[in-house]
Design a protein around this nucleic acid. Sequence first.
DNA 1: GTCCGCTAGAATCTCGAGATTGGTGGAGAC
DNA 2: GTCTCCACCAATCTCGAGATTCTAGCGGAC
Lengths: 248, 248
Amino acid sequence: MLPSQKFTAAFSAESETPRTLVENAYLALRQDIIEGKHAPGTRLRVEHLKDDYGVGAGTLREALSLLVSDALVVSEGQRGFWVSPISHADIEDITRTRLLLETEALCASIRNGNDDWEAGLVAAFHRLTKVEEKLNSTAQRMREWEDRNRGFHEALIAACDSRWLRYLIGILYRQSERYRRFALSSNVRRDIHAEHTELFEAAMQRDTKRATVALEKHIRATVDIICATPEEALQKPVRRSTRAMLAG
Amino acid sequence: MLPSQKFTAAFSAESETPRTLVENAYLALRQDIIEGKHAPGTRLRVEHLKDDYGVGAGTLREALSLLVSDALVVSEGQRGFWVSPISHADIEDITRTRLLLETEALCASIRNGNDDWEAGLVAAFHRLTKVEEKLNSTAQRMREWEDRNRGFHEALIAACDSRWLRYLIGILYRQSERYRRFALSSNVRRDIHAEHTELFEAAMQRDTKRATVALEKHIRATVDIICATPEEALQKPVRRSTRAMLAG
DNA sequence: GTCCGCTAGAATCTCGAGATTGGTGGAGAC
DNA sequence: GTCTCCACCAATCTCGAGATTCTAGCGGAC
């Protein structure tokens, strides 16, 4: 499934409209997991969820299978599905890996970027700026910010010629989104727009080193806030077997 | 699905036995795609395949969904599944990305590795050596070599503390396996065992730089052979829509 | 000769019911 | 009081049939 879905989300832009019920259920489930409506570590019972999402059991199972690939859901034969647990160690790991990949992609993008890339970046930054100027955090506006933030980060590395790099970065970005809500609910003062501006200007000036540093500071800032929150707050208790499975 | 499967293949070792029909079908399909029994770009019709693999249509669809995540299969809503096409540009991309990740993981592994890591590496190298000494290339022995080669490469980075890095490397490794058969069928002379030995000794001596160079040469050698073979030989014609989807 | 629209066929997508497996609670023995 | 065993219950896993969608081939019009 998720033909367009999967590969679009991965290798190019995520824009096509879902055509099948499986795609619908996949997108809805993914959104709910990222937003924390399904808490990390909780069970995902097919019998209950099929009613919530208005599809048959088989259809929902297929959607869950697709989420397993994204590592947002884990499953064990004959025992069912769970939302992937989260932890300090996990976000630390994700962040390090993200930095490795995104730094590389950003450098390639700066190296290869033509006028189209610059135009796309300017547009994405403008869209992001517009929404960041208004600081009220309605749920609707939050969702909008998420979209534009993703658009900005995609625009940054759009000129990277490695589709695989962009694909893997997409997976990690979605993982990071799960943690972001904790950072946003924190009361640590932080001028995200200033970080974005620095990143934008450095990229436009083709200053690889400055852009790299800005990206690292930007990504690090989020994870530092998350690691400042207690581990218990991150997720509800996890079943023993699942925890054991992921402990190694 | 593929709870153990997916995550085991990803984050730790791939050893658990499949428990459900979906897992069986997934593993069998994956093997057949990697070995080229299903040529790149060809269609995977559920109606036909369900008989070949002895499962129901729904079960096979679930297995295919899992393969979509591995990027070994692509799908498009209401139109079905295809084996992912392969190309010179793709293997080049995979190789560059692999090098970025594996180099990082190897350095981390050398940095962190304790006696257990060394022991595991010695054992894996020994197993690989035993099979490389006998150069007859039976299908059975080939399969054995594939397994031990994977074991050796996993042992190299086993002490890398980033699960995500190891997970992504696993995805890329399976992709590379699809191309290897072209390199093996080539008549270019190449002493793979010498490459492995160099890699092994450099790692054991904790010589990061030497190990990195050896790894790069090792991985590069394969892709160079593949890019020497004509593009047409790599795959059968691809459907227009699929090609268009992957062209961007 | 080229293009458009229609029709028939095939394949996908979806759903509900039955078979199989794993977890739980209580009774009984030591 | 603790451990083991067993039976019941819930949930997963699997399959086949029906509805929907896409593709291909053919005939006709320009």
